[in-house]
Design a binder for these strands. Sequence first.
DNA 1: CCCATAAGTCAACATATGTTTACTTGCGGG
DNA 2: CCCGCAAGTAAACATATGTTGACTTATGGG
Lengths: 212, 212
Amino acid sequence: MTAEPPVPPSSDTAGEPAQRRRRDAAETRQLLLDAARQRFARDGYAATTVRDIADDAGVNVALISRYFTSKEGLFEACLRAAGDELRRTTGQTPADRVPETIARHIADPAAAGLSSQLSLLLRSSGDAGADEIRRGVLVRSSEQLAAARGWRPGEPGSDQILLRAQMALAAGIGLAVLRSSIRLEPLSSATEQDLVGPLRDLVDALLPPPES
Amino acid sequence: MTAEPPVPPSSDTAGEPAQRRRRDAAETRQLLLDAARQRFARDGYAATTVRDIADDAGVNVALISRYFTSKEGLFEACLRAAGDELRRTTGQTPADRVPETIARHIADPAAAGLSSQLSLLLRSSGDAGADEIRRGVLVRSSEQLAAARGWRPGEPGSDQILLRAQMALAAGIGLAVLRSSIRLEPLSSATEQDLVGPLRDLVDALLPPPES
DNA sequence: CCCATAAGTCAACATATGTTTACTTGCGGG
DNA sequence: CCCGCAAGTAAACATATGTTGACTTATGGG
């Protein structure tokens, strides 16, 4: 029924390869990962069905079990990928550019951006393994942020900074969810320009730059 | 099996009535509401089963359908209750006491506190009706907070304040979830004392008091 | 050119879950 | 005291969902 033939899409618009090789395990895996992250981030773990994900990715449901063992395994893979992505994007940000970086990535209209990675981090599957992974990602991220603002693991008054970094992280995650999942207006349609000012105030108030 | 007889609990410890009348529709309804709010806030809508809720409340599953029509209806009732509770607790807070109030209620060890009401507000059932209710609660709350800091509906530069109030709300919600659902340490075991300082910094930076 | 094998599909199954229907129980007014 | 009716219970049902195993098809080395 309306067989949708292979239709080589005559790549004219897309800058990316776009031409999907017809059978490519690695690419299929990645398609599933991307579709899953979006769904999990937006709707949560339990509300997302494996059939939804497979349909979004344009592949068969059974491949989820094949490539990721289970829905749970796919979720864990998404968390790990979010951890990598987070480390990559915020990794070499100069300490004083943190608010701009967060603002730019959170306001990113492309749904593939950091926004969905952040949202993903507060979704839980109830599974202990996944919870452990997420906790690790969050701890590492907050430590990274705290370190950029003067936190040193052992130092006495230093744990205050870590706590404040986690609060900043919480603010970023809450912001991402209220914007992209809940779609609260006017927050949801605020631009990067609108967000960067308040975000700078927020981060600087929570985490004053090391010396001034 | 192990019939758990009516066991009149010889009210010695509890300050509240505690002595449950054996058949009381209003009380049963409230028990269901409380149990549902806790579950929905902690685990999300889809991950919560009506049997979980009924068991927590100590009543039969069928009563959910009877009193709230459906799981969806119960969820909406929880959202409405959260809206009322939020208006009540933050309603008559003097504008300059906002951070303390938030800190006190978020740090509240009693799980019945504002913390779970806030967490509830980012859980979604996917139903349009529930989404509308939640959006209303969030909008009213942010407007209330914004008004305490100088926002006036029509005024030109005033929408900046509303945006910032929504960011503060997002921060509070993210904080509540990371603390109570995700249990991120050290954030999770931070006391009210630990939180009030950073929270004051956060709110004051985002929403400077009207005139200074 | 062929076919072994990896990549992908299909259909069935077991189970968990929201909801309903018929039944039982205890409370309170007459 | 007693019975009608509200409050509560138990079991069954339909469906949605994660997973599996047998089957089909394209691909690329020999």
